[in-house]
Design a protein around this nucleic acid. Sequence first.
DNA 1: TCAACTGTTTGATCTTTAGCAAACATTTCG
DNA 2: CGAAATGTTTGCTAAAGATCAAACAGTTGA
Lengths: 230, 230
Amino acid sequence: MNKVDPTLIQDLKAFAGLEQGELERVLDQAHSSLFAKGDAFFREGERAQRFFVLLDGFLQVVRTTENGEQVIMRHFAPGEVFGIAPALNRDTYPASALAVADCVALHWPNKCWQEFANEVPRFVQNAHGAVGERLNDSQDRIVEMATEQVERRVARAVARLVKQAGKPSERGIRIDMPISRQDIAEMSGTTLHTVSRIFSSWADQGLVAVGRQKIEVLSAHKLVTIAEGH
Amino acid sequence: MNKVDPTLIQDLKAFAGLEQGELERVLDQAHSSLFAKGDAFFREGERAQRFFVLLDGFLQVVRTTENGEQVIMRHFAPGEVFGIAPALNRDTYPASALAVADCVALHWPNKCWQEFANEVPRFVQNAHGAVGERLNDSQDRIVEMATEQVERRVARAVARLVKQAGKPSERGIRIDMPISRQDIAEMSGTTLHTVSRIFSSWADQGLVAVGRQKIEVLSAHKLVTIAEGH
DNA sequence: TCAACTGTTTGATCTTTAGCAAACATTTCG
DNA sequence: CGAAATGTTTGCTAAAGATCAAACAGTTGA
């Protein structure tokens, strides 16, 4: 690892609060790789040998059922750690991580985890904090799946995407990533047909402008109303 | 903390692999309390001030939605840590923990967490392993809610209960805890009516014997067939 | 430029499951 | 004991969504 400027990096979530020296210590051992859109960082069930921090791009973490249905567990935007099996004493990755756009990621062999725990404890603490948030998010999502109906779940999925990958546009906020109806369906536990119908209805209400793999939110307020129940 | 015999305790999951000395170190700072059936160990949103190990009894962790619906996130049987907010850098409990039977639990003030991390690292590692499993279980459950229909989800909920609280009986396996139809509904994201109908149908097939807050599985094999899809 | 491919929309139908209502059973307690 | 409270069952109805089928639109590439 050589060419990434530490000062560019220090405000990334994964490295929050690290001092210059700690940061260098961590980056010193890092490898940096490119992953093209569609590439897998790792796959479900694979032996976990390294952990990652996303520097640029966007990725999704996906589980596949026995009958081949996919469920998108979550997306990651730059700055976050992922694939941190060693933090959880796991020896395989529990899901697949796929690049949704071209990505740049740092990664370290698992043995670094223990070293960092001793020498750069803040890094490991940040990771545990992230795990806590993810566990919390997962549980929120279980509650959501157990109690909310489809339109609201879809609204929440879109809201999450807006938060993570929304770019201001002339008329509202554009999700800066090609996302299909099928993707939204896999984020909300429904079918692409139902998503399509919901989007059509939202478009009629002027809430979104949609196109092929394109979603632009015209009224974030209305979206939130649907997502949260006024 | 005085009266609990360390040797009785050392095969509990939370303490797995601890040496005698470490175990005494941990138990030394522990408080021990009784919680009667129905009591709350802590409630959702409350400031997290201590972490727990269940010694005896059975508890459920529950989230409540804005409109008062409950979702049972999971149950805990003796031997497991819970309420470990400090392991995840969280300062409030994200859900409520309720005693389903009379319980005995050890607990420590949060400040012990950091001490244990330094002095009894195995204890903290075990906890992180438990977190990993729970995150994995949560994600399984999201996939389940997103892709399986009600009967299967109910079958899985019953199977989980059998695993955690099943006692062999003459005719099969009895869930050794009063569990209502409503409870099962809150574990599987459906209504008590639907659960009741499913149980009636299972009873007709000789798969279970049910009664008021009572579930006895007569054919674990058939249950698994429904839960896993042959 | 046209064909093949991929993603989207929409109608029609069918299934699953929620919601409502009422009866029933079991337990608890005055 | 009898009344109230709590938990369960079941019929009926309605709604939400899945599934099937077909047409359509935008993209890719020979």
